[in-house]
Write a protein that binds this DNA or RNA. Structure first.
Length: 385
RNA sequence: AUCCAGAAAGAUAGCAC
């Protein structure tokens, strides 16, 4: 009976929205009745992308079929709000799970704890941890890792490590994700020596670092301006014979671009292509920024053109980066031209785009133009942060 | 081993610090 559900789930997993919806339509056209497992994957598909409007449509349709939310679908909805940073809405959804008939399970709790941890409200996160334990719901590795990640994001290594101890004393062991959260905390606080020590440590306790962890580490070195060590990590990864993905290459390209080593960055691009990977907008934007930092507006413009030719249309980050390059080079005409161009392509400038332009006019000593752009920003409904 | 419709981690832009 579940052939269409399986299909929908498969397409949802690979994020093929069109096919997933087509399978859903075919299910209904075949005279079959969708069930809660039909809706779950569809909701997840939209929730992951933050398309909560579409999620609500599915909720309505679910009702029409006489289906009620269960803990899985509600957790999915909650996760959508977490992705969007809408903590309050996430919490309201969470409360729907705490009716007289149901109690939130460990996934739901982990979800809501994650919402608060991501929002920086660790007090509330800990309250919910206490609450779940009060109800006899045992935190698992994900729950602990969410908390450790929350402390890590705040750069509170002390609390992060305390939480690791608490996790261990409850009989659970840190996973590679847990270690990665700790390493990220160390990187964010500039403690690269310790970060490297943690990697050694985890190898000793038998948790193998993976590509994502090495990417985090490389990025840490990049932020510290230590390209040499970033390159060492990359070489080590290659030596391990692991299959490298676009993000590792991208992190290295970023490390090189940030210090102006564009020829080396391009060499890495060559490697990436040789490995059968294609550049995406992030990688192109990284290169764009590299040229911008060198003050090379011409090369930056080349990258923009190349993106179009390669079928990777420039996005808001690309244009903002390029506008920044123009501003820094004192070419405000080109900056404004680009600003108009992006809008004509239907790409809405965001807060960073406006700030770049305002600042550009300011640096160029045209306070009136700066103020005009600022007003335009407000008129567009954007508030300065 | 269990589970597998739901939860945790990695790369790009501005200003301020």
């Amino acid at each position: 009976d579940g052939i269409f559900n399986t299909l929908i789930d498969g397409y949802a997993t690979v994020r093929n929205e069109a096919e997933a919806l087509r399978a859903f339509t075919r299910l209904k056209e075949s005279g079959l009745v969708p069930n809660i497992r039909t809706f779950g994957p569809l909701m997840k598909l939209f929730a992951m992308e933050g398309k909560m409007g579409r999620v609500r449509e599915l909720e309505d349709e679910m009702q029409l079929w006489g289906l009620e939310h269960n803990k899985v679908t509600l957790s999915t909805v909650m996760d959508g709000y977490v992705q969007l940073g809408e903590v309050q809405k996430a919490y309201e959804t969470f409360k729907q799970l705490s009716g007289p008939r149901h109690r939130p399970d460990v996934v739901a709790y982990t979800n809501i704890i994650d919402a608060f941890a991501k929002g920086g409200d660790m007090d509330r996160a800990l309250e919910l941890l206490a609450d779940m334990r009060r109800w006899g719901v045992k935190p698992n590795q994900s729950t602990w890792t969410v908390l450790i990640g929350g402390w890590g994001r705040q750069g509170n290594l002390q609390k992060a490590m305390e939480t690791v101890r608490e996790m261990r004393s409850s009989g659970l062991y840190p996973t590679v994700v847990t270690f990665q959260c700790i390493i990220q905390a160390l990187c964010n606080t500039g403690q690269m020596v310790k970060a490297a020590a943690v990697v050694d440590e985890m190898e000793k306790v038998g948790v193998a670092p993976d590509i994502q962890l090495f990417t985090t580490l490389m990025d840490g070195y990049a932020q510290a301006g230590d390209v040499t060590r970033a390159l060492e990590v990359f070489k080590k990864l290659k030596g391990m014979g692991k299959e490298l993905d676009l993000q590792v290459y991208s992190a290295l390209i970023n490390a090189l671009s940030k210090v102006g080593r564009m020829q080396s960055a391009l060499a890495v691009v060559g490697e990436l292509r040789a490995a059968g990977l294609r550049l995406n907008a992030t990688v192109y934007n990284t290169l764009l920024d590299g040229w911008s930092r060198r003050g090379d507006v011409w090369e930056a413009a080349e990258v923009l053109e190349e993106m179009e030719l390669d079928g990777v249309p420039p996005d808001v980050v690309s244009y903002t980066t390029f506008i920044n390059a123009c501003c820094k080079a004192g070419d405000m005409d080109k900056a404004v031209e680009t600003f108009d161009l992006m809008r004509s392509k239907g790409i809405e400038p965001n807060l960073k785009t406006y700030t770049t332009l305002v600042d550009g006019w300011g640096s160029a000593r045209f306070p009136n133009r700066a103020a005009a752009v600022y007003d335009e920003m407000l008129a567009a409904g954007l508030r300065p942060d």
